[in-house]
Simulated assay, not measured.
Amino acid sequence: MDKTEHQEKEPIKKVSHVKKQTVAAKYTREEVFHASSSFGVSRELMFGALRLIDKDEFTKSEVEKAIKTFKTRKVNAQ
């Protein structure tokens, strides 16, 4: 008999969950500022929102979060 007939086959392992890492696109401050209408906000609001982030490049989710934070922040009355 052949050697392969006597060897036990290894069980096939099922992979139930595979995580794929995706790299989010990054945009410069200028690109985001000029695309303010794509986010449904004015350039003035976008300018204020981007001032909250101390970076030069942003992902879409970072910009959306900054806009939300800027819109809901409390204003100090003097």
Rank of each mutant, 00 (worst) to 15 (best):
K13N: 02
E5V: 07
I12Q: 01
T4R: 09
K71A: 15
G40N: 08
S16L: 15
V75S: 14
K13S: 06
L50A: 03
V23H: 08
V32T: 01
E57G: 01
K26A: 06
K14G: 00
K9F: 10
L45T: 04
F58R: 00
S38G: 11
K9A: 07
A25F: 07
H34E: 14
N76D: 15
K3L: 10
F33Y: 15
R43E: 09
N76W: 08
S61Y: 04
T22Q: 12
V15D: 06
H6A: 10
V75T: 13
E10Y: 02
T28N: 03
S36W: 05
K26H: 10
K71H: 13
F47N: 06
T59M: 02
A49W: 00
K3F: 09
D54T: 06
S36M: 09
R51E: 10
N76F: 11
V32L: 04
T22L: 10
K20L: 13
R29L: 08
K26L: 10
V23Q: 13
K26I: 09
T4W: 07
T4H: 10
E5G: 00
S38T: 11
K65S: 14
K13H: 05
A35K: 11
E44D: 11
T28V: 09
R29Q: 06
V18G: 00
S38Y: 14
T59Y: 01
M1H: 14
A77D: 08
K71Y: 11
E8M: 05
R51M: 10
T4L: 13
G48P: 02
R43H: 05
L45S: 01
K74G: 09
T72A: 15
S38A: 15
P11A: 03
S61I: 07
T72N: 15
A66V: 01
E64Q: 09
T59V: 02
K65T: 14
A49G: 01
E62K: 00
E62C: 02
V63S: 01
T22A: 14
E10H: 04
A77G: 04
T72K: 15
G48N: 06
K3Q: 07
V75R: 15
H6T: 13
T59K: 00
N76R: 12
Y27D: 03
L52R: 06
E31Q: 15
S38H: 14
T22W: 07
V63T: 05
S38E: 14
N76K: 14
E64L: 14
K68Y: 09
A66F: 01
K74D: 11
E62A: 03
E44F: 05
A49P: 01
G40Q: 12
F70V: 06
T69I: 12
V15R: 05
E31M: 15
V32M: 06
K13V: 07
E5W: 06
M1P: 12
Q21D: 10
Q21P: 06
K13C: 01
E30Q: 15
